[in-house]
Design a protein around this nucleic acid. Structure first.
Lengths: 187, 187
DNA sequence: CAGATTCGTCTTCTATAGTGGATAAAGAAA
DNA sequence: TTTCTTTATCCACTATAGAAGACGAATCTG
């Protein structure tokens, strides 16, 4: 579970102050750019107030950041490099299907490299990846991706943005192994 | 500019209602799970109130989602497939440095594929990518990545999570072209 | 040293976020 | 139909978010 399931006020306070000071803006500067009073910004930065969505929107706008990114930055605080040999790998002994967790743990943004042998089919229930932003990018080979009732034929270099949660299937229709990336925002 | 630079109240309202109804929860159900009164949830879903960070934290917690993910879901709503040939590519005529925007436009999560010829150096000012969550993953070849005062030697398969904004330099120390991915959360 | 800025916090006040309970509307079961 | 249940919205009230300006401390400027 992410740390944001408790009160996010502390993390937001810290991040907001960091964003402001890294730009060497005073409270008055940020107040002018965002339209939020400096008294309120001061309170928020000291965790003495819980800002509304409207105010958070104005503040993130002043920084040129989408609100979700500002909060993602507030959430994370972890290690940095995941070298290739440290990256956890899992292989299905039956099919040879292989997943490699490329990104450092607890990343907001997660990259997963998958090797899908020829003619192998991998089902994915909707519940397994529901409510995550997710993309599939084919590095090499071909991939038939069934998303609910829609079938996508993806070739080398294609990138698909997943839509609403649905039962999915990965299938390699070719004779060569397919290598693709799953990029997603982690819960 | 992302759509969250205006008031995010509408988008949050829509997304929240969608999350609740997709779970077939009543207002009372969500109120019990989140600790937020159903009157307030009703107001938020009808865009008649701007929820505080504290309340948003409780609601996203009830859904089992980090707050940043909930808002990222609220932000996006766009096209789906970017086929390889549609993806915009830019090449530096002098060095041969090539960037390909893999992800569909306006994605919260953006994938960029870069080809860096041997011995080529690419500087990157802090302002160009500051305050975005960003990772670098080497697909092939080697990459020396200077981040402020820190120098990272990355080899094939390595993935680096970028830290605080700093002036950076990409350098290919090898004799072969380097191919790497920049994954980031877009503004 | 005085005088003028600039900084963050504190004070006062208003607008509204948030709660608990009442109410209305729509079904379901009798 | 009537009655019981479940749904969401409305009402009255309290807590607090948010604005505008005052204040004291620190840093320039001469």
């Amino acid at each position: 579970m992410g740390q944001m399931e408790q009160d996010p006020v502390q993390a937001i306070a810290k991040r907001l102050k960091m964003e402001r000071e890294s730009r060497t803006w005073s409270l008055a500067d940020l107040a002018e750019r965002s339209g939020v009073s400096k008294a309120m910004i001061s309170k928020i930065e000291r965790s003495e107030a819980s800002p509304t969505a409207t105010v958070l929107g104005r503040l993130s706008g002043a920084f040129g950041l989408p609100l979700s990114v500002l909060l993602a930055l507030a959430e994370r605080e972890q290690e940095r490099v995941a070298s290739h040999r440290e990256q956890p790998v899992w292989t299905d002994p039956e099919t040879g299907y292989t997943r490699r967790a490329v990104s450092p743990p607890n990343s907001v943004l997660e990259l997963i490299e998958v090797f899908l042998p020829a003619h192998v089919r991998v089902p994915y229930p909707a519940s397994a990846f529901a409510f995550q932003h997710q993309q599939i990018w084919v590095l090499s080979g071909r991939l038939d991706f069934q998303e609910g009732t829609v079938l996508h034929h993806l070739s080398e270099g294609d990138c698909l943005l997943l839509g609403s949660p649905a039962d999915c299937t990965f299938f390699n229709p070719g004779t060569e192994p397919t290598r693709y990336v799953v990029a997603l925002t982690r819960r």
